[in-house]
Amino acid sequence: MNLMLTVAEWLGDPQQWSGPAGIPARFLEHLGYSGLALLIAAAIAVPIGLLTGHTGRGGFLTASAANVGRALPTIGVLMLVVLAVGIGLTPVMVALVVLAVPPILVNTHEGVRGVDPQLRDAAQGMGMRGHEVLLRLELPVAVPLILLGLRTAAIQVISTATIAAYVGIGGLGRFIVDGQARRQFEMVAGGSLLVVLLAVLVAVLFYLLRRLLVAPGLRRRTPVGR
């Protein structure tokens, strides 16, 4: 209980809430790195996934990328990239993007691939051309899976960005690293709680996005417990 009190005290200390090393600044830094990495990864993975899903080629490649990506230990990748390229924002971005691409890629690919062939036939029968089928049928139907991929990637990027503080960039991980170095547990725990908060916020954001972006006709397809 005592521990909880010191953590609450640390979180409530006005000193923590201002300046370039304060909680708001670190929170925004963390959000910035994660958001940027996710955007870059999405810009790479979504078009490729749409294309491979639409043409039906490269399924094996995306599945393999996902399997390897799933098995890779994040901290190893991060530290290897940093050793190779040096400390700074770029290597961290590279590592974060490398880790975020596979889930987005695979889910986009499978989302487009999984469109009911009858729907595709119907779209073609209505006179839609290839790109129209992709943009007006396959993309909307794939949105739930694409969002799932983005959410998985986002949560992973947020955790990895925490670790990135070990290789010298800012963000909420700094509280954990600095707190460890100074043996101030309240700082470590406070930083951890903030990371948890950010992850939960992002999960809620994706829940809202799902409500917003998924076509009404598709929404009822999520039975609970089947």
Partner: peptide, 30 residues
């Protein structure tokens, strides 16, 4: 062993809320 069968095996591992078919839903994190 192309995309469909590979996808089916992973899709079976995804959670119910993430239906339809979520091949890469439950990924590990950092």
């Amino acid at each position: 062993r192309n995309r469909r069968s590979a996808a089916a095996s992973t899709a079976a591992a995804s959670s119910a809320a993430d239906r339809p078919a979520a091949p890469e839903g439950r990924r590990r994190r950092a």
